[in-house]
Amino acid sequence: MIVRAGTGWQYALADLSLILFLVTASALAQASSAPKAPPPAPPPAPIAAAFTTEPVAVWSAGEGAPPLSQWLAQVAADPRLEVQIIVRFADKKRDVAMAQAVQLVTEGGPRASAARILVEPGERSGASVSLNYASEAFAVPASGPAASLARVSLAR
Rank of each mutant, 00 (worst) to 15 (best):
E136W: 07
F89I: 04
D95F: 12
V129P: 02
I86W: 09
L131C: 02
A90G: 03
V102S: 08
G122E: 08
L72S: 11
W71E: 07
A90I: 04
E123W: 00
S135H: 09
R111E: 05
A112P: 05
V105N: 08
A99M: 03
A112R: 06
I117V: 15
V87E: 04
R124G: 07
L81A: 00
I86H: 11
V105C: 14
G122V: 09
E120C: 04
W71S: 08
V105K: 15
N132C: 10
N132T: 08
D78Y: 04
R116A: 05
A101M: 13
D91C: 05
S135T: 04
A97E: 03
R116M: 04
V75A: 05
A77W: 12
G126I: 07
F89R: 02
S128W: 10
A134Q: 14
A127Q: 12
R94G: 14
A134G: 13
P121D: 07
S113C: 04
P110M: 05
D95K: 10
E120I: 10
V96W: 09
R94M: 13
V102A: 13
F89G: 00
L104F: 03
N132P: 01
V102W: 01
R124V: 14
S128H: 14
A112V: 06
D95P: 06
D78P: 10
E123N: 08
A99N: 08
Q100A: 13
D95Y: 07
P121I: 04
G126E: 00
A101K: 07
A112N: 00
P110N: 12
A73S: 11
R116W: 12
Q70I: 03
